[in-house]
Design a protein around this nucleic acid. Structure first.
Lengths: 218, 218
DNA sequence: AGTCAAGTTTTTGTATACAAGAATATCAAT
DNA sequence: ATTGATATTCTTGTATACAAAAACTTGACT
């Protein structure tokens, strides 16, 4: 414990921003937060620097640190990139995936199915995350794996919203099956297409996303 | 001037790491660097935090900041991701590119050709960069554009090395033409494939990259 | 010589102090 | 009342001070 407070503070702040405690444009008051965390301004400022590079916070010289939540356009862009990254992971994984990993994917999927049956979105979310991380890993490119995981994490709060819409879990489930099929056959293009379609925000999903954005703003 | 030293320090340090002043594993001495930059440790430590997230520096608690240069494996991985990102940019740009941007691409290419004729690697490098940035931009996805530019920048020193190999400039040139052709026709898949092949490190290029890595270590 | 332990020196991490810029309040003049 | 100038307060950015951990030194002991 307490081995590196500045690090933890960055994570805690990230969490606070993710879970909606701060909204777009809010200024992060150094002294108030320092008080709140029970530390001085120094470690807080170090944390700000980290958050700035990942885009969660904008540092305006001599003005302060401001929360930067993605708007609808930026969010669509991020989902588009996520879809493409997953597509690449899938294509590479189709060539490189291990039998063990295929089993793990099937296992994750089985647990997803159980969550669908139980209407348990939280459980679904956990297994869904495992499913995707396995694919990132099996791309055989750890840099790609990290980048994909980073963006995945950033989109987490918005993806979670999505799952709450009726029927989304079951549909998502079916898409997972298609991905596993393609990967089992070693069909790179099919796996790629299935993952892109799975992640991309289009049609119905677009309206759902916009709707959840509005409700979050209230 | 002097509006925000911590920021500038991060950039200067980045430059020092890129241009090979520091090699993998070197410790960045806070007091020595503070002296060197004529500032105190505080802004330096803030800069370290930034560099840490972009992967240039590893912060080990209670030990210090260590330079993290990518090894051969990580480098290959990064080039693989770069190739895929460019491929995505190309596919999207084929649908979204403006006539003006197409003209700009042809202009950049003409200047590249002039640089090839003059055997001017520096000039080639500048125009090559412009060429690629136009494509990032024309993906119509500014988040993607930023991510691509970020990785592009990170790989800069290694790409630059590559251009010095005999015939590489001319070959690169020819590949650019193929990209412009595909984009002009609005052929997404062709543009995507051409860009992937252009950026990917394979065959000859692999050996060249490894060779330049060795010479850099000497 | 080699190893280990205690003491010393460095170095990191955090708090505090201080200087300078930005925001805000005060107040006179139109 | 509104505007503009000046003074005051807040806030940021940086330096310095200090505590605690790590690295290094020294010297006793096997």
């Amino acid at each position: 414990m307490q081995q590196r407070r500045a690090d933890n503070i960055a994570e805690e702040l990230e969490e606070l921003i993710f879970n909606g405690t701060y909204s777009d444009g809010d200024r992060l008051d150094e002294v108030r937060l320092a008080d709140q965390f029970g530390v001085s301004r120094t470690p807080l400022r170090e944390a700000f620097q980290r958050l700035a590079l990942s885009g969660l916070v904008e540092l305006i010289p001599r003005r302060g640190a401001f929360v930067r939540q993605p708007g609808p356009v930026e969010l669509m862009e991020m989902f588009e990139v996520m879809a493409e990254l997953e597509a690449v992971c899938g294509r590479l994984a189709a060539m490189r995936i291990s039998d063990k990993a295929l089993d793990d994917l099937r296992d994750a999927n089985a647990k997803c199915q159980a969550a669908v049956d139980a209407q348990d979105t939280d459980a679904y979310y956990v297994e869904n995350e495992r499913f995707h991380r396995i694919i990132y890993r099996q791309s055989g490119n750890s840099f790609l794996e990290q980048e994909a995981a980073k963006l995945h994490k950033r989109l987490k709060p918005f993806r979670r919203q999505q799952l709450r819409f009726r029927g989304r879990m079951a549909q998502s489930m079916a898409e997972h099956e298609a991905v596993v099929d393609a990967l089992t056959r070693g069909a790179g293009d099919a796996a790629s297409a299935a993952l892109r379609a799975h992640v991309a925000v289009q049609g119905e999903k677009f309206h759902n996303l916009m709707a959840s954005l509005k409700s979050a703003a209230e």
